[in-house]
């Protein structure tokens, strides 16, 4: 075999492998789309729906539709979602956006102190942040319940079953982001800020007018990563949010899949409707995220 043929064989093998792998990866997506258009509630199992129906989509969008109750007589009834599932998507977006913005605010200021200021126990605090954050949120639920129950008695917007309460809980998880942003701040030469000080900027002005604008790339990364993780957060949201009009996407989507009655069609429609925009946004910001992941995880 010549060298040329050898490379050709390798190329074919590589393409073959990647394409097969891609099919395995992508088939679930296709099946979900098909399940959302398929009449009746079946677990995703076909590439194309046998009987096309828009009922699930109507339900998810909160549009009333007719369902045949008795096939023999053709009797129908009107079905409309009590809480339009799209509301859950909107709740999730709202909660994730506000939480992510709050995370950026809290972690960038803290990261500034850790990166640029000197104070007692700086290194030990940094280490403690990382280690304590390893405690799984799920197991803090009892404590969250106690806290929110208490705050709810005094400030009713921050109690149990409020989105503000959930956001407040989410804002505690900042330590990973502090580390990421601190790492980025440290790559910015200190002379930038020194120069600004000579130009007459106060420390706060230096932070706001020099360091923050220069750090926009890492803020984009932190924002996207925290946004995605809050969109997916299930256990805390499911405990804190009790009434269905407060639910997030994760809680709502899971509510379609009771042990007794699994409403796959509605779930699929909701999954497509809410999954697609998030995926598209992620792919648009891909370059940022990848850069952030590699620089955050791999220190040069």
């Amino acid at each position: 075999m010549t060298a040329h043929q050898k490379i050709l064989v390798r190329k074919v093998a590589a393409h073959g492998f990647v394409v097969c792998f891609l099919i395995l990866v992508l088939v679930p997506f296709v099946m979900v789309i098909s399940a959302s258009f398929r009449q009746g509630d079946f677990a995703p199992s076909r590439l194309l729906p046998d009987k096309v129906s828009l009922d699930h989509w109507k339900f998810v969008l909160g549009i009333p539709y007719q369902e045949v109750v008795n096939p023999a007589t053709g009797e129908t009834r009107t079905i409309k979602a009590g809480t339009p599932p799209l509301l859950w998507f909107w709740n999730s977006i709202k909660i994730s956006l506000i939480s992510s913005a709050g995370i950026i605010f809290l972690s960038s200021t803290a990261a500034y102190a850790f990166a640029r200021l000197r104070f007692k126990f700086r290194t030990s605090t940094l280490g403690a942040l990382l280690i304590l954050q390893m405690f799984p949120m799920v197991l803090s639920l009892v404590a969250y319940y106690v806290i929110l129950d208490f705050t709810g008695q005094h400030l009713k917007w921050f109690g149990l079953n409020t989105q503000a309460g959930l956001i407040m809980v989410y804002l505690g998880g900042i330590s990973n982001y502090i580390w990421m942003i601190k790492g980025y701040f440290e790559t910015i030469p200190a002379t930038m800020e020194e120069s600004a000080r000579i130009d007459g900027a106060s420390q706060f002005q230096t932070f706001v007018r020099i360091l923050l604008p220069m750090s926009l790339p890492i803020f984009a990364v932190v924002f996207i990563l925290s946004f995605i993780s809050y969109m997916s957060e299930y256990p805390v949201a499911s405990v804190v949010l009790q009434s269905s009009d407060n639910w997030t996407l994760a809680v709502g989507a899971n509510s379609f899949l009771y042990e007794q009655e699994k409403l796959w069609g509605r779930f699929a429609a909701l999954a497509v409707l809410s999954g697609v925009p998030i995926t598209v946004v992620f792919l648009l910001c891909q370059r940022f995220v990848i850069g952030g992941l590699t620089s955050g995880g791999v220190k040069e």
């Binding site: 002379t191 020194e194 120069s195 600004a196 000579i198 604008p213 220069m214």
Partner: peptide, 13 residues
């Protein structure tokens, strides 16, 4: 005083 730095420290944004 005014200072000129080794890496110029120009504000990139």
């Amino acid at each position: 005083i005014a200072m000129v730095f080794q890496n110029y420290a120009l504000y990139p944004h």
